[in-house]
Amino acid sequence: MVVTCHTLHVGGFNCLSVRSLFVSDFLRSYLTVAIFGGVAVALVGVLLGLGSFLRPSKPNATKNMAYESGVDPVGDMWSQSNIRYYVFALLFVLFDVEAVFIFPWAQRLETYGYFGLVEMAIFIFILVLGLAYAWRKGMLKWV
């Protein structure tokens, strides 16, 4: 969208920079986030690239073997692992989704007053019930 210069006072940015394309402050800040992400990836890439000029490269079969305390690795590395981790992952998803709900409430608590307080108390109570259930069932125990 082309807009004229004098209609633009977006967050004190120079008019020249946004002449041809109107970008809201909101999207612009996420553009900055994307640029920073690109810089992070580029920094790692440059560092590794720089190293490739300086380091030796003499691969051999023994050196490139996976480390297993000095003996030849036995069996397949990508084996099945213990199921105990999966219960914690499920619990984590549960609680993380709940934390997402609490954030907007926490920000606007002053406006909601007692109503919001009672609502959230009920919400957290139900959640604690869930945690207590998992606890009672022995899911929080490391078996």
Partner: peptide, 13 residues
């Protein structure tokens, strides 16, 4: 020192 170290990538990785 780390810049000069060899970059080892396991064959099976």
């Amino acid at each position: 020192k780390f810049l000069q170290k060899e970059d080892i990538i396991p064959t099976k990785a």
